[in-house]
């Protein structure tokens, strides 16, 4: 049993370090994008369009990962795209967690009418195909960073509400909650001081996952050309461009895809790793 726990903790450790490392690198690169990016991400040069990556004979120095059909530097656009992706993740993720978590907590702890209304809303939301829903919302709200973040919050709050509600119901049935009530805690205080801390590990793991999902949603929206202006460097926009010229210049699609892949994987693994680390049973 002890050995089992040790193995799990070691694996969680490696997971945390690897995923945390990539996210840290990404944050640094995004913060210092103007210094790190070798080229101007918007600078077009039709004479040097579709240059291959550095290991190819036709590569040109300074364009490490090649250029797209308009001659824009792929590496610089991936770096600037990280800014957009992380901005969306860092605002949309916590906001969704806050709203969804609060509604889930209220539904799960207070039950009654609040629960019935919130649960019915969740049911209705779950009957929408999420991608279609987000595209529809962007069509309503207009493109831009704020609209993307708003769309993510409006759609994904149910993810938190469902899980936190179930967790709060589990915790609410436990003796320590009854004890708190006997000790004269108000309902509100019991919820915030007793239930919330016990729901927190789940919430944190879910938040990390949600940040990865936000990155994907942004990429999907820019893929269907509904995110920022067409010119702005976004991973999804690069992927859309790369998809159309995939047989001529696969690298335009491949590099933003790798960045997206590692980022989404890291967010989810980081969350799982944190959960394992803070899980009181494993600790």
């Amino acid at each position: 049993m002890l050995d089992g726990r040790g193995a799990i903790r070691r694996r969680a450790g490696a997971r945390l370090w690897l995923s945390g490392g990539w996210l840290l690198l990404l944050v640094t690169v995004a913060l210092f994008a103007p210094l790190v990016a070798p080229q101007d991400p918007l600078a077009q040069d039709l004479m040097s369009g579709r240059l291959p990556p550095f290991w190819s004979a036709q590569a040109e120095p300074g364009f490490w990962l090649g250029t797209d059909s308009l001659g824009r530097d792929v590496l610089s656009r991936v770096i600037w795209g990280a800014r957009v992706a992380l901005t969306v993740a860092c605002i949309a993720g916590p906001l969704t967690a806050l709203i969804g978590g609060a509604l889930g907590l209220i539904a799960g702890f207070y039950r009654g009418w609040a629960d019935r209304i919130i649960s019915r809303l969740v049911d209705i939301w779950m009957a929408f195909p999420p991608v279609l829903f987000s595209i529809l919302l962007i069509a309503v709200l207009g493109t831009g960073l704020t609209s993307i973040i708003l769309a993510i919050v409006v759609i994904d709050w149910t993810r938190f509400a469902r899980v936190v509600r179930a967790e709060a119901m589990n915790q609410g049935a436990m003796d320590y909650v009854a004890a708190a009530q006997v000790a004269g805690f108000s309902r509100l205080r019991t919820m915030t001081a007793e239930i919330l801390p016990n729901v927190l590990p789940t919430l944190v793991a879910l938040l990390s996952l949600e940040m990865g999902i936000s990155v994907i949603v942004e990429a999907i929206l820019s893929f269907v050309n509904l995110s920022l202006s067409t010119d702005a460097p976004t991973w999804g926009g690069m992927i859309a461009e790369g998809r159309t010229s995939i047989h001529q210049a696969w690298w335009v699609l491949a590099f933003p895809l790798v960045a997206l892949f590692l980022t989404v994987l890291s967010f989810s693994q980081f969350g799982e790793g944190l959960k394992d680390r803070f899980d009181p049973v494993l600790r």
Binding site: G212, I213, I216, A219, I220, F223, I239, R243, I246, H247, W250, L253, A254, L257, L260, F261, V264, L265, S268, Q269, E272
Partner: peptide, 23 residues
């Protein structure tokens, strides 16, 4: 399983396009 689970269908689709469509 863990990796397959963390990556959504959109990204798998793109990966498949690169691997079995181009390379």
């Amino acid at each position: 399983n863990g990796v397959a689970l963390s990556i959504p269908d959109f990204l798998w689709g793109l990966l498949l396009i690169i691997i079995f469509g181009v390379l």
